[in-house]
Design a protein around this nucleic acid. Structure first.
Lengths: 126, 126
DNA sequence: ATCGATAATGTTATAATATAACATATGCGC
DNA sequence: GCGCATATGTTATATTATAACATTATCGAT
């Protein structure tokens, strides 16, 4: 891992919610990161390896919470609109069914996104 | 449907790929749409009713291809990176499993996103 | 050790996407 | 007609993402 990737990755590991590229930029300014591109480049590399995931629904990024996701299976995210937590899961049977749905249509899947937005257990009960 | 919503909706119905808000703005300038907000407002209302869907992976919008999606079931999109087509499907069993996954965690789902990016059958065989 | 290729960095500028804040108009029940 | 809710319009600005180009490490082959 290069310098910038390490900085970005460690920050994401400590975060308790998805961070935007600009959140990251701001947090790492005093560590020598000065431009958006430095962040986006690090994120691209990290995502490529499955060390971080992009959360499409919030334009944010999280560190992989599962086995540094070599990424055979789809990640399923539950996103709380209240506390902003992003919890990652996998589910072999959903993955299989989704793959089958694509295969049926001769669709060659390269990347899958599954995100559920709503209220987490904690926020629900408040 | 209001004037602006009608304009936006009809444009999306004719499109063969997801359109960005600014694509829509440009296409409807001569129909009197002049500002991004006019488009975003129309899209918000249309999406609320299930008449259009936002495609998170491409920051674009499509008209619902299925029964003007009263929206009981999740929409599953297959997005071709080559021709940019966005085909919509539903699958009761995937929906159910995903719902169950949330329920198990006491997660109150408000919205679900499932998107598969890759190559469609046509583009694959070229 | 140094040349040269490859990957990583840094920097400025700008593109693309989305919303805030405020002013005006329009339809509709009373 | 009055008052309220909803729809519109407009300007400005925030947020997210990339292009283009210059510079610097890194490291193996000679």
């Amino acid at each position: 891992m290069t310098q910038n990737e390490t900085l970005v990755y460690h920050l994401l590991c400590q975060a308790d919610r998805p961070l935007s590229a600009y959140n990251i930029l701001d947090a790492l300014r005093d560590k020598g990161i000065r431009a958006p591109l430095q962040v986006y480049r690090a994120l691209a590399k990290l995502a490529e390896r499955g060390a971080v995931h992009r959360i499409e629904s919030v334009n944010g990024f999280v560190a992989c919470q599962l086995h540094d996701c070599g990424g055979s299976e789809v990640s399923i995210f539950m996103l709380c609109t209240q506390c902003e937590r992003a919890d990652e899961f996998t589910d072999a049977s959903i993955d299989k069914k989704l793959q089958a749905l694509g295969d049926d249509r001769k669709f060659q899947a390269a990347h899958k996104v599954i995100e559920i937005t709503g209220l987490c257990a904690d926020c629900r009960s408040v």
